[in-house]
């Protein structure tokens, strides 16, 4: 059985969870087994509707100790669920929660983990999972040799598929240990689209000359319902917060559309964004290396092009 870990925050199931559900369901079909979901804690959503993403059952562990993420508590609960449900493969999202919990579950169950998978396993000769390596510059095909196998899927790597099904929801009775990590405050940026979940990202570089010029980036992002990002020099100069820095040593993203404005495209920046499905580069320097990695480009002054682009998108949407 393929067991899919369903992640949530603020009582809502995360978008990345639908991706892992669809991935896990496709994997179960490939292996000729069933796909079931595991949810720790409580959400507002009706769990039966997860059947729409291909799972037959949803196992829920309701316990107040699970309201905050303590990786130790979560890992123990997941491992106990795996053992009691007899799961062979566990699927996580390679998001913040998956990075905290999946390695612990792997060590606890002595199960091989491929972290950052980008495709379904090839089972023709072993259990070989393709994953992102060298920060987006290459892929490795990794064989898992243990009996229990764990995959964490890179966000935005798998198409969500709705099947129209309904799942049965069952309470799973397992002992939940006392958390040792106490969360004292949570500081979320309200109203913005989280960068790692965004389908469209608008990003600015040094070519924008100063933080006062970011309004046009934000206007464009707003029209596209996109997240904003920036290059490393921009974050280092303090023009934008560090959590917006995308690149090899920042956040690595794979949106459907990445619009780079005034970014030259250093190899370290490309490593963080080159899994984007479509890349648009706007730069006044026709020699900017980013054009080589782009799908569409405009050689021109960002201060003229970007407001026009925002207007044209308004027209399209209106």
């Amino acid at each position: 059985m393929v067991l899919i870990f369903v992640d949530h925050s603020d009582s809502e199931i995360k978008k990345s969870s639908y991706e892992v559900l669809s991935y896990g369901a496709a994997l179960a079909e490939k292996l000729g087994t069933s796909a079931e979901a595991l949810l720790l804690g409580a959400v507002k959503d009706d769990l039966a509707t997860l059947g729409n993403y291909g799972v037959s059952k949803v196992h829920q562990v309701s316990n107040d100790a699970l309201n905050n993420l303590d990786a130790q508590v979560y890992a123990r609960a997941v491992a106990d669920a795996v053992t009691s449900l007899n799961a062979d493969v566990i699927v996580f999202s390679h998001n913040q929660t998956g990075k905290a919990v999946a390695p612990r579950v792997a060590a606890r169950l002595k199960a091989g983990l491929v972290a950052g998978a980008v495709a379904l396993p090839d089972t023709s000769n072993g259990f070989v999972v393709k994953k992102n390596v060298f920060s987006g510059k290459a892929f490795a095909n990794v064989n898992i040799t243990s009996a229990i196998k764990i995959i964490s899927l890179n966000p935005n790597s798998f198409q969500v598929k709705q099947t129209g099904g309904t799942a049965s929801v069952e309470q799973l009775n397992i002992t939940v240990s006392e958390p040792k990590v106490k969360v004292t405050s949570v500081n979320k940026v309200k109203g913005e689209v989280p960068l790692t979940e965004a389908e469209i990202v608008v990003s600015g570089g040094r070519g924008l000359k100063g933080p006062e010029n970011w309004k046009m980036v934000e206007d464009l992002a707003h029209e596209l319902h996109a997240a904003t990002a920036c290059s490393r020099p921009v974050a280092d100069a303090g023009w934008r917060p560090h959590h917006e820095h995308v690149g090899q040593t920042g956040i690595q993203i794979a949106p459907n559309l990445y619009i780079a404005i005034g970014i030259s495209g250093a190899i370290q920046h490309l490593a963080g964004v080159n899994r984007s499905k479509t890349i648009v580069v706007i730069n006044k320097d026709p020699e900017a290396p980013f054009f080589k990695a782009a799908d569409y480009g405009i050689v021109g002054d960002a201060f003229e092009v970007v407001p026009k682009l925002t207007d044209e998108i308004k027209k399209l949407k209106g």
Partner: peptide, 16 residues
Amino acid sequence: LTNVVSYELPAPKAGV
């Protein structure tokens, strides 16, 4: 528990 079987490079972009 795992071993790398092979590596591959991303498919080159078709051109801007």
